[in-house]
């Protein structure tokens, strides 16, 4: 037997086209949406999806396209991608129902796994906002008293923002929505048109799910803590403010924060398998 034969024996081809029994498994693909996206502006490419900016029905729109991953078995890939697309739009609606700002969904194409979302205009990520506030604070650190005042104002402003984040996450967890990917990049700060402050909009519910378990909520906060402290150095006190406002606004916070302490000691995975 040649080595090639051996390989063929040991590793049956995953993408054998004959294994795709047409009909129930492979839905017809419509090529129209991918073709349309070729003309759209690519905003970001992640591990799981590409995000485009475009006009849809005359409105500024963001399109999130989940692409297929060639290394996964076709059937599994289709199933996972579809489930995540569905889960994402479901969680968005659940949040909006509860009064938590999230982008409106305009259209979903389950054949090409694209979600068409309202573009949040006049917004920046919380990540950029914190970073730029911190930077402008450190620039002025050597100057005089007047600038110290400014620094104080900026610090207060960040604390207010942390409080706002804590409140909104408390509200989300009280609705049993677990975001699954809480980072400061997945929160947008939208300035209101009349400049009456700004509100927070949660985005990217691709890894979200519904659960009432304090464990899951604790892990959700743990993921945020890790992401928060690593993207924004020297913000331990700020994050404590966030947790404080979380516990003040959520009815079930004590169990969640207890779990968070547990998760900190052992890491995000409960079982050590896999």
């Amino acid at each position: 037997m040649t080595p090639d034969h051996l390989v063929a024996l040991l590793c049956p081809p995953l993408h054998n086209p004959r294994r795709r029994r047409g009909g129930n498994m492979a839905p017809e693909k419509s090529a129209t949406v991918p073709q349309f996206l070729r003309g759209a502006e690519l905003v970001k490419q992640g591990a799981e999806a590409r995000v485009y900016r475009t006009q849809f029905l005359g409105r500024p729109t963001i399109v999130k396209e989940r692409f297929s991953k060639r290394y996964r078995h076709v059937a599994l890939d289709e199933k996972l991608t579809r489930r995540r697309t569905v889960q994402e739009v479901r969680s968005i609606l659940r949040c909006r129902r509860a009064g938590i700002p999230a982008p409106a969904v305009y259209f979903v194409d389950y054949t090409s796994h694209c979600i068409f979302l309202e573009e949040i205009l006049r917004s920046s990520t919380v990540r950029d906002h914190i970073a730029s506030t911190q930077q402008s604070a450190s620039c002025t650190v050597q100057e005089l008293d007047r600038d110290q005042d400014r620094e104080l104002v900026q610090e207060q402003e960040l604390e207010q923002l942390a409080q706002q984040v804590g409140q909104i996450l408390a509200k989300m967890h009280d609705e049993d929505v677990i975001h699954g990917d809480l980072t400061t990049s997945n929160m947008l700060l939208r300035r209101s048109p009349e400049d009456r402050g700004s509100d927070l909009v949660l985005i990217d519910f691709g890894l979200s799910y519904i659960s009432a378990l304090p464990e899951d909520k604790g892990v959700d906060l743990y993921v945020l803590e890790k992401a928060f402290l690593s993207t924004h150095p020297h913000t331990e006190a700020l994050f404590q403010k966030l947790l404080k406002s979380y516990s003040a606004s959520s009815k079930k916070s004590s169990a969640v924060l207890k779990k968070l302490d547990e998760v900190r000691l052992r890491g995000r995975k409960r079982s050590m398998v896999g």
Binding site: R96, A102, V105, E118, D199
Partner: peptide, 14 residues
Amino acid sequence: CGTLLDAVVCRMAI
């Protein structure tokens, strides 16, 4: 957190 139109359109889409 949004207009009535947004709420309606979301439900139609989903």
